[in-house]
């Protein structure tokens, strides 16, 4: 076993002192380092309302740029900005984010199938039944997440602005009868593979995409695995044992 080098001990000491000093000062005022851009304003003793100025500003910019095409928006404080546009505005929204918000970084693109799984959660063991009511899953209505939704499939794409350090999630509802959207490749070249993946996994179509072949699945694969109504065959064949061993938390006693 080696000794800790002396300079490390000094650093550690300094770090500890700093932490202690901060712990003391934080009881007095609640200012945070500048770069987090999240300010806490204490309204009452118990309720804390958080606002995210950067996200608000970004949303305002996008609203101005897209002139009321944003159907809904959501800001989760410190966690980003969600907007939802109509499918006809899918590409303009990305373009606006790239040009007005400087979101040059293409993060990812995917889709969500909001239909509740007809197979439940495939958790039908005794243990699961204790914790969870299986009836609950039957006849479940579609429930959408942030920014709501209207149809089963929703496209979602995240772009990021490195200069402004803000990421935007853009969502768009796809029509149920013909889920298709314009490809984002002219704006973000990297959308290519992501759209191919979304196509094969959800059975969507991207117009103006040059090369809509399967990317992961074999060419003759049937079905779209990430759709909720696509059965997970391994679960059909052999039921999952479920939560058989619940791990003890540290400090817990049997």
């Amino acid at each position: 076993m080696a000794e800790i080098p002396e300079h490390l001990l000094k650093r550690a000491q300094a770090a500890r002192e700093k932490a202690e000093a901060e712990a003391k000062s934080s009881t007095g005022d609640s200012t945070k380092p500048e770069e987090t851009a999240v300010t806490e304003t204490t309204e009452t003793d118990e309720e804390v309302i958080l606002t995210d100025e950067k996200a608000e500003a970004a949303l305002a910019t996008l609203q101005q740029e897209l002139e009321g095409k944003i159907l809904d928006s959501h800001i989760a404080t410190g966690r980003g900005l969600w907007i939802r546009v109509g499918i006809q505005d899918w590409r303009p929204a990305a373009k606006a984010a790239k040009e007005a918000l400087d979101c040059k970084f293409f993060d990812w693109l995917s889709a969500i199938d909001w239909m509740p799984s007809p197979y439940g959660r495939e958790h039908e063991t005794e243990q699961d039944l204790i914790n969870d009511d299986p009836e609950e899953n039957d006849d479940k209505e579609m429930e959408w997440g942030y920014t709501g939704g209207e149809t089963r499939f929703q496209l979602i794409c995240r772009v990021y602005s490195i200069s402004k350090k803000i990421g935007v999630m853009i969502k768009a509802d796809l029509p149920d009868n013909d889920p298709r959207a314009l490809s984002l490749i002219p704006i973000y070249a990297g959308a290519n593979w992501h759209e191919r993946e979304a196509r094969e996994m959800f059975g969507l179509t991207f117009d103006e995409h040059p090369d809509l072949r399967n990317i992961y699945l074999p060419g003759d694969f049937e079905g779209h695995p990430l759709r909720k109504d696509y059965p997970l065959l391994s679960r059909r064949m052999k039921p999952w044992p479920g939560i058989v061993d619940v791990e003890l938390l540290p400090g817990d006693e049997e």
Partner: peptide, 9 residues
């Protein structure tokens, strides 16, 4: 750099 960003590197 621009290409790297648009491909999401």
């Amino acid at each position: 750099p621009d290409v790297a960003l648009s491909y999401g590197l």
